[in-house]
Design a binder for these strands. Structure first.
Lengths: 212, 212
DNA sequence: TTTCCTATGTGACTTTTATCACAATTTCAA
DNA sequence: TTGAAATTGTGATAAAAGTCACATAGGAAA
């Protein structure tokens, strides 16, 4: 993407006022990352807050044994509440952030976050909405983990992936799915076979097609 | 508690400046609730943000079938990020809040939240810190649910309860513990018996004593 | 083609958790 | 004191998930 006022205006529509867009252009850093790029690791120090322009980022929580659980995705024009709280409270990251696909983003330096909050009401609104959304996402993650069985969670995960990328075919291994659901590869393989028998998915090597 | 400037000053120490304390006195509502009092239910509309003076509140997430999972506790001088996001975004509650014991709190009306954020930097800091803490709490809840077995979670729950109330004996039934961990009474009974055999707890009717 | 690596399939088994049924115990109130 | 309700104990069994071992298959590179 061209990183100029015109394209910013196109992307952010009426979300931000012009003065804010000018500051974003001035102080923000445009960035493009490939699928699999690790944006943040637990313990990492966060110096800026990302705003996603296109693509999507998955946010994972890891335990000490290296197991991981998917928390949620952030996509177009979303931002990350973790980085917000971390920036504003000068804390280290407690999560992992990985690009799910080729992703464009703008990095906002930490010192501007607070400054803009008093200066631009649209920015303040953006920050609050981000908190709201991420809380909802986390609650959703807890719902999944606490109240649903693995087969439902697996199907739910595939559906969310479909929604994120706007397609119904994924190049992903059972091993990777197992990691996102914090379980083992064999379990995923069996559940997928079950779902295939029910006509909900179609399986081939490195590929899963979601039916319906 | 006497709800006046002197006691507020005693309680809030250096957390808030004097001008803010005066406004809290003016616009806040002092409230005392008994154990079991339901402060908020899913779908409820939130018109104010509570600040806990003493006691503790437990925050639960319910699914559609009425099962519940404990998210976290909020205690002295803490506030609730849910009510913050809900207030600031004019949304309904997605959680349940119940007094775990006799609890004193101050209710801050929604319109003051934003106003004070631009007016008092200590209030802004308080709001951000609240978000930070609740995010950490939610991540902790996810850790427990996703990565730990029930016996560990049960012991963890008892330990957190001990920390909250500053004692090691609880008046609680197995049924209630089951609800907080989103499982059945029988499972809790068996796990508690196990823990008793290991010398970690002492059981009697309506009472559990934590050893060590 | 052959070889090798990665990915998937699957049986056998264990552990963990859930469910059902009913007994035993404690407490409180009539 | 007696009965009812609440609480806890426990066996039997099932369902869900995790683990180990090894077989099979697909695709890339030599």
């Amino acid at each position: 993407m061209e990183f100029n006022l015109k394209t910013l205006h196109t992307r952010f529509g009426k979300l931000f006022e012009v003065g804010l867009l000018e500051e974003i252009l001035l102080f923000g850093t445009y960035m493009e990352v490939d699928e699999g790029h690790i944006l943040m690791k637990p313990g990492g120090f966060i110096r800026n807050v990302p705003i996603i322009l296109s693509g999507s980022i998955k946010i994972l929580r890891a335990d000490q044994d290296g197991r991981e659980a998917l928390l949620y995705y952030i996509g177009g024009l979303d931002s990350c509440a973790m980085s917000l709280t971390c920036c504003l409270n000068h804390r280290h990251s407690e999560i992992t952030a990985i690009a799910e696909e080729k992703t464009e983003l703008i990095l906002i330096p930490v010192e501007k976050i607070e400054e803009w909050m008093t200066k631009y009401s649209t920015w303040k609104q953006f920050v609050f909405t981000t908190y709201q959304k991420r809380f909802e996402d986390l609650l959703g993650a807890i719902d999944q983990i606490a109240f649903h069985k693995l087969d439902e969670r697996l199907l739910g995960l595939l559906n969310r992936k479909a929604k994120q990328c706007g397609c119904s075919v994924f190049n992903i291994t059972h091993e990777e799915l197992g990691q996102e659901l914090a379980t083992s590869r064999e379990v995923i393989s069996r559940l997928l076979k079950q779902l295939e028998k029910l006509g909900r998915v179609k399986l081939s090597r490195n590929k899963i097609e979601l039916i319906n």
